[in-house]
């Protein structure tokens, strides 16, 4: 089933097309969410919400644009929503002076879960910088493509990407230097 057939099928409410959509793009959406959020469980929730939103709003998709970019835009916005939600709850728990029984932190996973997580070094980046880096490295996106996902200008996207690449390189070099110095 090609992309056009999948979209037509989803618009017609066919379960087989919905399934094909998730099977085709699911790992892509999950990898972006995982790289932006850094937590497997939250990334899976974001992935689920992204596809449900896609199924609901597929009629608004502009066929002139790239479907993958439209899908990743939704995944990125959902990931930002998730990060905001977690930050709000963390702030609330501090104000209310209680420690929640279960409060997910980036990197917390079930030890039995073999799925990989992005490097802790990426925590030094803002969500926009992480997204720009992820789309550039994994998907080969240019600054213009990234700008469509981040809803900003190509110049801004280029600066995000440049800063991300420079910060992580500096951190890697520092780590390497520390290892060499003992």
């Amino acid at each position: 089933m090609d992309e056009r057939e999948i979209i037509e099928g989803c618009l017609g409410g066919k379960a087989a097309s919905n399934r094909a959509m998730v099977e085709t793009y699911g790992t892509l959406v999950l990898s972006v969410a995982l790289n932006v959020i850094g937590n497997r469980q939250d990334a899976e929730d974001v992935c689920q919400e992204t596809f449900l939103q896609v199924f609901r709003r597929l009629d608004r998709y502009d066929r002139e644009r790239s479907f993958k970019t439209w899908l990743l835009t939704i995944a990125y916005r959902r990931s930002l929503d998730m990060l905001r939600k977690k930050r709000r709850f963390a702030e609330f728990s501090v104000r209310a002076r209680f420690e929640p029984a279960v409060l997910g932190r980036p990197g917390d996973i079930d030890p039995a879960d073999p799925a990989p997580l992005p490097s802790k070094l990426l925590e030094a980046l803002s969500p926009r910088e992480r997204t720009a880096l992820c789309l550039w490295a994994n998907e080969g996106y240019t600054a213009k493509d990234i700008s469509e996902v981040l809803a900003c200008s190509a110049s801004t996207a280029r600066v995000y990407l440049f800063n991300a690449r420079r910060k992580i390189k500096a951190l890697l070099e520092n780590d390497h230097g520390l290892l060499q110095n003992g």
Binding site: A15, N18, R19, V22, E23, T24, Y25, G26, T27, L28, L30, S31, L34, N35, E44, C47, Q48, F51, L52, F55, A115, P116, L117, P118, S119, L121, L122, L133, C134, W136, A137, N138, R165, I168, K169, L172
Partner: peptide, 26 residues
């Protein structure tokens, strides 16, 4: 170098497992 630090689509499992999770809501 960036790829080695990021999670790539091929490392996140298969789409069928995701569909099992999403299918009920969908």
């Amino acid at each position: 170098e960036a790829r080695s630090l990021l999670v790539r689509p091929g490392q996140t499992g298969d789409g069928a497992a995701l569909w099992r999770r999403i299918s009920e809501e969908a």
